[in-house]
């Protein structure tokens, strides 16, 4: 079975074709990072305006690369939520118009399901069950995944997402937007232990996170101890990253212990962070757990994970619905997702 996937929930337009026999046939992505940079953050209306300009060229690109025609698709999957309402609606309207006139059925996909299944697209995919750590600019969650459509939320952030904390802290250090990747690069040359930042909720006894306080601690540091020495920003970045990584690692290991599962799957943009990967790998090795990551190109939002999640749902027996009547779900808790 062959599924077209369309992702437009935030600032990336992604399309892909996944074939259940032959795997991922093609994918194409446009990122709007440069568009939003001068605004210091994603402007929802501008994101929507950009998505609608990108969809047709990206669809043509991905169909051309896939070697199959639109008529050879079995279903159209798109991100129904969660995300920016206007941005979601663009991908949704396009997909529905396309599917309705092709006479193809629709599979609405939960964005986070796309992320947490994305490591299955890798060369060495993990087997079920596993604990998924989803860390991105919009989400920070720990989930127990028993199979396709069988997800249990173990815990999540109560305020900022990890990626959001990275970007906001980067802003405080004058690293621009989106500064997350620049911050972690700077942290690599910082001296560990120069500053001691709080590890929020490390001992809360649950699997929830909170990163707003960490950002505030950096703000206080930057304001009060503003030092002229050139290493100051790097040392602050290092202290921030050390704190955030420690919390993510300890809670992930605790989740593995709690569920009795042996595999940890890391998804989302922050999953590309080198120090996080190192720390997770080391902690897991000591306890004989295995850690899986998506291919780097599928860490951030993309169409491949949506096509794949749609295809997995089909394989699990989900009934696609006829195209035509649609609604986006900007806020859509994963635990409301019905099993396949």
């Amino acid at each position: 079975m062959r599924v077209l996937g369309i992702e437009s929930s935030c600032d990336e337009t992604g399309l892909a074709v996944y074939d259940t026999e032959r795997g991922l046939l093609a994918h194409a992505l446009h990122t709007q990072i440069a568009l939003h940079a001068e605004y210091g953050g994603v402007v929802p209306e501008l994101a929507s305006r950009d998505h609608i300009r990108r969809l047709v060229p990206l669809l043509r690109q991905v169909m051309g690369a896939s070697g199959c025609s639109l008529a050879e698709l079995d279903a159209v999957a798109y991100t129904q939520g969660p995300g920016l309402a206007g941005a979601l609606l663009v991908g949704c309207a396009f997909a529905e118009g396309l599917a309705a006139s092709l006479g193809k059925p629709i599979l609405p996909v939960h964005h986070l399901e796309g992320h947490l299944l994305s490591p299955l697209l890798a060369q060495e995919p993990p087997e079920f069950p596993f604990v998924a750590l989803l860390v991105s600019g919009g989400h920070t969650q720990l989930m127990a995944v028993a199979g396709v459509g069988k997800y249990e939320l173990l815990g999540e952030t109560l305020d900022d997402a990890a990626g959001e904390a990275f970007d906001k802290t980067a802003k405080l250090l004058g690293l621009g937007y989106p500064g997350g990747p620049a911050l972690s690069k700077l942290a690599d040359v910082g001296q560990p232990g120069v500053f001691d930042l709080p590890r929020p909720m490390l001992h809360s006894g649950d699997f929830n996170f909170s990163f707003a306080g960490l950002k505030t601690a950096v703000l206080t540091l930057v304001r009060d101890k503003s030092e002229d020495r050139p290493d100051f920003p790097a040392d602050v970045a290092r202290a921030f990253q050390d704190a955030l990584v420690e919390v993510l690692v300890k809670k992930s290991i605790a989740a593995l212990k709690h569920t009795g599962m042996q595999r940890l799957v890391v998804a989302g943009g922050v999953g590309a962070n080198r120090q996080l990967r190192q720390a997770l790998n080391e902690a897991a090795r000591k306890r004989r757990y295995r850690v899986y990551y998506p291919e780097l190109e599928f860490c951030t939002d993309n169409g491949a994970m949506i096509a794949f999640a749609g295809a997995m749902r089909l394989m699990a027996g989900a009934q696609p619905r006829p195209a035509g009547v649609f609604a986006v779900r900007p806020r859509w808790p994963l635990n409301e997702l019905m099993g396949a």
């Binding site: 209306e45 929507s48 609608i52 969809l55 047709v56 669809l59 043509r60 639109l70 206007g86 609606l89 663009v90 991908g91 949704c92 309207a93 396009f94 997909a95 529905e96 118009g97 396309l98 599917a99 309705a100 006139s101 092709l102």
Partner: peptide
Amino acid sequence: AFTGLRVACGIAQGMAVAL
């Protein structure tokens, strides 16, 4: 209305590419 414009345009684009 911005959203309305994109609903018509997005559906029309999808149909036009499909057909």
